[in-house]
């Protein structure tokens, strides 16, 4: 497993909290969603860094008030073909104003990374060796011209309000 954030491979300062393990007071763990719903009271008023893992199909309204409290939100791609996390990412960024790390976990493949970035992901937990290799080489397949506004900073171009290019 390798973690890439903003294009750089780095050690993961976070770990997933296994079921049944008590949360360390120092934080830096990524809670399963249900755990958080049940145990959130333990962190009332605390500002230790916390993360949460959200599976597709989750209603974000259940944690709306907590979203900005997290430092890391991991959105799961149980299969690369399951595209729900793309919409969840956009909602987190646009609707809930989440500014922390948005991490793609699960089946994260190189050909989807640009789409993920455009939906607001900035960190990628990668198990696929070829994807890790491509990321290390800075060789992420993608296009440079876009027909939609996105969560990234892209440069508007031409007369159509929706057209954008990658920021140089």
């Amino acid at each position: 497993m390798a973690l890439f954030k903003n294009g750089v491979e780095m050690d993961d300062a976070w770990r997933s909290l296994p079921d049944g393990e008590a949360a360390p007071a120092s934080g830096h763990v990524i809670f399963p969603f249900d755990w958080w719903l049940e145990e959130r009271g333990a962190f009332e008023g605390s500002n230790v860094p916390l993360g949460i893992r959200i599976e597709p199909g989750t209603d974000l309204n259940n944690i709306a008030a907590d979203i900005k409290r997290f430092s890391v939100i991991a959105l799961a791609f149980p299969k690369y073909g399951d595209g729900r996390a793309f919409s969840l990412a956009r909602l987190l960024r646009e609707r809930y104003g989440y500014k922390g790390e948005l991490r793609a976990v699960g089946e994260v493949l190189s050909d989807q990374i640009q789409l993920m970035q455009r939906c607001g992901f900035d960190a990628f937990e990668v198990t696929d060796a070829i994807t890790a290799k491509a990321l290390r080489a800075g060789r992420i397949p993608g296009v440079t011209h876009f027909y939609q506004p996105s969560e990234r900073t892209e440069t508007p171009v031409g007369v159509r309000p929706w057209t954008r290019v990658s920021k140089a």
Partner: peptide
């Protein structure tokens, strides 16, 4: 809709 990042899967 062309290569829409949110709606490709």
């Amino acid at each position: 809709s062309s290569i829409h990042p949110e709606f490709t899967f």
